[in-house]
C-alpha cells in the first residue's frame, strides 16, 4: 500500500490567513514532489466566521480528514482549536497560538481553561505567534507562518513530507514583493522557537 497520508487540520477565524497557510503547505508539497489536497472549508465570505482547512499530504484525493485522524492541528486561535479538537487523537500534535478572539456577545472559556482541557487530551504546544508577529516582525498577519515554522520544527513526521527548505520555496511561490521577506523571517523565527524546545 502507498505511503500513509499525513493529515493537518488548520483551525481559526476567517481573515487570519488560514487559506494562505493551506496554500503554503500545498506549495511546499509540490516543491517536495509529494501529492496533496488542500480543502478550504468556510461558509460565507464575511470575516469573523469559523474556518478550517484540511491539508492531506501523500497520495489520495478524498479531501476531508476524518475525526480522530489529524496528525497535526495548527490552531490560529484558542476557541477554534478547542472547537475542532475531536479531529485529533491522543497521539496528535496540537500547535496553538495563545491568541484568543471571542465571538461578539458571547460567554466563552478562558485561554487558561482551554489550555488545561487540551493538554489532558493531546500533545499540546502553545506559542505566542500573534505577539511575535505583531511585535517582533511588525506584521500581525504573519502569525500563521510563525506557526508553520514552529510546527515543522516540532514534527519530524511532518518534515518527512515537506522540510524547511521546501517551505521557504513555497513562501517565495505564494507571496510577492515585501511580503516574501517578512514571511521568510516568520518561518525561520517559528522554526527556531520550536527547535529550541529540543523536541523530536
Amino acid at each position: 500500500m502507498a505511503l500513509k497520508r499525513f493529515n493537518i487540520l488548520i483551525a481559526g477565524v476567517g481573515g487570519q490567513g488560514l487559506l494562505t497557510l493551506g496554500e503554503l503547505i500545498g506549495n511546499a508539497a509540490i516543491e517536495s514532489g509529494v501529492d496533496v489536497t488542500v480543502a478550504e472549508v468556510h461558509g460565507l465570505s464575511q470575516r469573523g466566521g469559523s474556518v478550517v482547512v484540511h491539508v492531506r499530504l501523500g497520495p489520495g484525493s478524498s479531501p476531508v480528514i476524518p475525526k480522530g485522524a489529524a496528525d497535526l492541528i495548527i490552531g490560529l486561535e484558542a476557541i477554534e482549536t478547542a472547537r475542532y479538537i475531536d479531529y485529533a487523537s491522543r497521539e496528535s500534535l496540537v500547535v496553538m497560538d495563545s491568541f484568543i478572539w471571542p465571538p461578539p456577545l458571547s460567554k466563552h472559556p478562558s485561554l487558561k481553561q482551554i489550555v488545561g482541557e487540551l493538554s489532558g487530551r493531546v500533545k499540546l504546544f502553545v506559542i505566542d505567534a500573534s505577539r511575535i508577529a505583531r511585535e517582533e516582525l511588525k506584521a500581525a498577519v504573519a502569525a500563521n507562518v510563525v506557526l508553520l515554522g514552529y510546527s515543522l520544527a516540532l514534527s519530524k513526521e511532518f518534515r518527512n513530507y515537506v522540510d524547511l527548505e521546501a517551505a521557504v520555496k513555497a513562501v517565495r511561490r505564494v507571496f510577492r514583493g515585501k511580503a516574501v521577506e517578512v514571511n521568510e523571517k516568520a518561518l525561520i523565527r517559528g522554526y527556531s522557537e520550536g527547535g529550541s524546545l529540543g523536541v523530536k
Binding site: Q46, G48, S50, A82, D86, I114, E117, L118
Partner: peptide, 24 residues
C-alpha cells in the same frame, strides 16, 4: 464503525461558543 477515534470534545463552563458569520 470507523478506524479512527477522536479525543473527547472539550467540556468547559462556559462552553465553546458558536461562531456564526457576523457583520464585519
Amino acid at each position: 464503525s470507523a478506524p479512527w477515534s477522536g479525543v473527547e470534545p472539550v467540556k468547559l463552563e462556559p462552553q465553546v461558543p458558536p461562531r456564526p458569520p457576523t457583520l464585519c
